[in-house]
Design a protein around this nucleic acid. Structure first.
Length: 304
DNA sequence: AGAGTCAAGGGGACAC
DNA sequence: GTGTCCCCTTGACTCT
């Protein structure tokens, strides 16, 4: 999809096209995904298996799907419903056990940095206040101790990841360059950000969705204005029509019309003076102010 | 307390 | 069959 700043400056026609082709440009630049068999961010979809209980809710769906991915972690639950699975997932500490998950992806091994950014909970606000480079050993220790606290917390709710400013900035920067990522780019970015590829992918998906939503809002505003303008124009034309009808009734049958309204097309010599004669049939949405009466000099053939 | 934000889950569609 | 996308939704968290 085009960037918002670009779309916002589009003309009406371009806007209409944009509406019809939502997100297509974005898709068009999506590189054909090469097959990466050892992609640690393995397909997150075809995951109709029963979920293996993982301590980390941020383990992508794909993580427990990849049976061939050397994950021999025993399943602690069978046939959990969606909700109960979520409940189970959040009961366990996130950064404990996450590292013990054997993964071919080194990125799956949560670094202290990502442990903080990915599994913060009550720390979110603090995390925003402190920049990520300020994450020192004390902070890491605090996180670790909190992890053990969480273990004792029992049924706590799922924790929410908040990306650090630096992570967000880098992701934004990357998004400006391409709104979609190929697997290599994703891997590289994930490594750079100490995030899992799945998290990068999700961020881009949500970012695209936000862009689209914003564009939709802009489109909506534009269409509202169009509607208002057309309503006004319609009102004006209706009024003009009424005036002309009244004028016609008030005049004797063969009384010549006022000179200003007597118009003749110079090419076919037919009388004009039609209602709203300035509006071209080809431009029904023209917002340009129109003359109330046909102007043969401005538009010699409009009456034909 | 309720609205807003945003990372993530789940599912369908599609290309290869 | 796999990987990725979009869409919709959920739930944790923040803001007012």
């Amino acid at each position: 999809m085009m960037g918002l700043h670009q779309d916002a400056t589009n003309s009406g026609l371009q806007l209409i096209l944009g509406l019809a082709l939502t997100a297509t440009p974005e898709d068009s630049i999506t590189p054909s995904p090469p097959s990466i068999s050892n992609n640690p961010d393995h397909h997150h979809h075809h995951h109709h298996h029963l979920p293996t209980l993982r301590p980390n809710s941020y383990s992508s769906k794909s993580s427990f799907v990849t049976s061939s991915n050397s994950e021999a972690e025993p399943s602690l639950t069978l046939g959990l419903s969606h909700e109960s699975y979520r409940q189970q997932v959040v009961k366990l500490p996130r950064n404990i056990g996450h590292n013990k998950v054997s993964s071919e992806d080194p990125l799956e091994q949560t670094s202290p940095h990502s442990a903080i950014s990915s599994f913060s909970s009550g720390r979110v606000k603090r995390e925003r206040d402190i920049s990520c480079e300020e994450v020192d050993a004390t902070e890491i220790e605090r996180v670790s101790s909190r992890a053990s606290d969480e273990e004792e917390d029992g049924p706590t709710a799922r924790k929410k990841l908040r990306l650090t400013k630096e992570q967000s900035a880098l992701l934004e920067e990357s998004f400006k360059q391409h709104s979609t990522l190929n697997p290599k780019q994703k891997q590289a970015l994930a490594k750079q950000l100490s995030l899992r590829p799945r998290q990068v992918e999700v961020w881009f998906q949500n970012r695209r969705a936000r862009t689209k939503l914003k564009q939709t809002e802009v489109d909506c505003e534009f269409l509202k204005k169009c509607c208002e303008t057309l309503t006004d124009e319609n009102r004006r034309l209706q009024k003009e029509l009424q005036e002309l009808k009244a004028l016609k009734l008030a005049q004797p049958l063969y009384m010549p019309m006022p000179a200003a309204t007597l118009t003749m097309c110079p090419s076919c010599e037919r009388l004009g003076g039609g209602v709203g004669g300035g509006a071209s049939p080809k431009t029904p949405f023209s917002m340009a102010p129109k003359p109330h009466f046909f102007n043969p000099f401005a538009n010699p053939s409009a009456a034909c």
